[in-house]
């Protein structure tokens, strides 16, 4: 005869599961992944809900807010005048900067930008450079004398993993939102005259979209990792692709090894993600221009 144990009530059960998640997070995740799903209910290849809002900041020349699950990034672009660089007089500048303030996660401290922020900034700068989103020549107003500087400030408001995808998307959406006034150089005074009434959109030449993966236990690939998943994973991988399926960036900062075949699978997922995102972006931009 076994002693009778009453069934555990649901609240207690949930509480126990919750504490299990705290004590053994990796084991908890493995149980889910074995069943091809994740604790938040997503499948392995599923993205979180992505929301984009463009023109969010009225004082900026172009802006966008991107929310991917809880991860939120806002991008504001400010255009200013500057003298073009000496070695390339027919070019302007694009200066990206990613800020991860203490506001977005308890991981970050105040003070000078930490390693993560610097690495993300470098990644965004690489994407800009590699994909040639903006031709620097387009930003030149008068060769050798005046050019535009686009300060692209990306600020993370809520950090819950996959910052690279959100930042790349926010940057692209904001660049598509930038309107620059017409500038003419007065030949008599040699001063720049700004015509604020006549504004035109930037020529955005490429549409790079980033897709991030996390590797679990050296074998399992999951898409769009949350902060917790990133922390528990044994490696991450980010693929940036443009609309022709050309790769601008294959960023794998160490971690578990992958074979060529696995990489190819990731690339197919990146292709379909690109379609999704560009459809979303087109829709948003149309909705604004039609008004």
């Amino acid at each position: 005869m076994r002693p009778h144990v009453p069934p555990v009530p649901a609240d207690t059960l949930l509480a126990v599961v919750k504490s299990w998640r705290t004590v053994e997070p990796l084991e908890y995740y493995r149980r889910f992944l074995k069943e091809n799903c994740r604790p938040d209910g997503r499948e392995l290849g599923e993205f979180r809900t992505t929301t984009v809002n463009i023109g969010s900041i009225s004082t900026a020349d172009g802006s966008a807010l991107v929310k991917q699950g809880n991860t939120t990034v806002i991008c504001g672009i400010k255009a200013e005048f500057a003298a073009p660089p000496l070695d390339a007089p027919d070019r302007g500048y694009v200066v990206p900067n990613v800020d991860l303030p203490p506001l977005c996660s308890s991981r970050f401290r105040t003070g000078p930008p930490g390693e993560e922020a610097q690495v993300t900034s470098q990644f965004i700068a690489d994407v800009l450079e590699n994909s040639q989103i903006i031709k620097k020549e387009d930003l030149c107003i008068s060769p050798g004398k005046l050019a535009w500087v686009l300060y692209c400030d990306l600020i993370c408001l809520d950090y819950d993993g996959n910052i690279l995808d959100a930042c790349t998307f926010a940057l692209l959406a904001a660049l598509k939102n930038v309107q620059l006034p017409e500038v003419t150089i007065n030949e008599e005074t040699a001063l720049a005259e700004v015509n604020l009434k006549k504004k035109s959109y930037l020529n955005v030449r490429a549409n790079p979209v980033a897709t991030s993966f996390a590797v679990f236990d050296d074998t399992l690939l999951i898409v769009d990792p949350t902060g917790e998943e990133e922390h528990l994973s044994t490696g991450t991988l980010t693929i940036v692709m443009d609309e022709e399926g050309k790769l601008c960036c294959l960023h794998k900062p160490g971690g578990s090894g992958l074979t060529g075949a696995k990489l190819q699978d990731c690339m197919s997922r990146a292709v379909s993600r690109h379609k999704e995102v560009s459809r979303l972006l087109d829709e948003v931009i149309q909705s604004v221009t039609h008004k």
Binding site: D40, G41, R42, E46, F47, R48, T49, T50, T51, V52, N53, I54, G55, S56, K67, G69, N70, D224, E276, V277, R279, L280, E283, V284, S287, V288, H290, K291
Partner: peptide
């Protein structure tokens, strides 16, 4: 298919909602 909330804001994906 993207869902347009207001002009300038759209959403995609049928995954989980954010906790906001």
């Amino acid at each position: 298919k993207p869902v347009l909330w207001t002009p300038g804001t759209a959403q995609i994906g049928d995954g989980i909602e954010n906790s906001w």
